[in-house]
Amino acid sequence: MSDTILKVRDLYRTYDIKGGLFKKPGKFTAVKGVSFDVERGSTLAIVGESGCGKSTLARMLTMIDAQTSGSIEIDGLPIDIAKTGISKDMRQKVQIVFQNPYGSLNPRQKIGHVLEEPLLLNTSMPAAERRDLALEMLTKVGLQPEHYGRYPHMFSGGQRQRIAIARAIMMKPKLLVLDEPVSALDLSVQAQILNLLKDLQDEMGLTYIFISHDLSVVRYLADKVMVMYFGEVVEYGTRDEVFGDPKHEYTRTLFAATPNADVDSIKARLAKKVA
């Protein structure tokens, strides 16, 4: 029996669309009956294009929004914030890293306070201990202790994403939702952040939900892959299954559209151009 940390069953999320002067009010279903399991310590990649519902799913998993129907269970704890609200217990299970490192840090908050905020709000840890933990976390994600007192705008995009990751793991969560964490970063920085994520996973036994539109990153990092299209899961399987033998038409389109940087395809393209 495998060790399942996240269990999602038949999850729906519906938004009401306000009616305008000439428009009737309507409903928009962003996530349509999604079910999946994630094993402890593994990485599930959720792939899809904008508007496919992957970010809505992330917001439900991290308790930012409530689900319309269906069940989420994280580490044995049922999550339904519309009914039960959020407890500190639930908060310690799951955290999120956002896509845009420039928007996800409060510009008026020094890095140290950014990192300490989750501890301050959810634990009764004394200030000195919080600070030690924040300093330790800074070194862990590859920054220096002297960055503690600086403001976010003094950092590059990659460094900010490190800070955002550090903030997310301050409370030692079981599950980390990564919402396109590297798509706003330069290629070389992207590689560093991906390495960091791998190291942290090995070290802390983290489980990742990795949301991305970049198939090459997904292929590198994921154990299992889930492809979403207009709110529905169209493909779900291990990485090798999905990449080796995509079943759904959309998945194949997605693969075909991804730019190819290998020499053979460049040769083929140039040959076609001459002809």
């Binding site: 991290t62 500190k88 908060r91 840090l105």
Partner: peptide
């Protein structure tokens, strides 16, 4: 609706803290 406000919410900040400590300085 900026990400840092959502992040503070995920970290567990209450309404008053969000209003006066997170949003107001910006």
């Amino acid at each position: 609706n900026r990400d840092y406000v959502v992040a503070a919410r995920v970290a567990g900040a209450g309404h008053l803290r969000l209003m006066f400590k997170t949003i107001l300085p910006n």
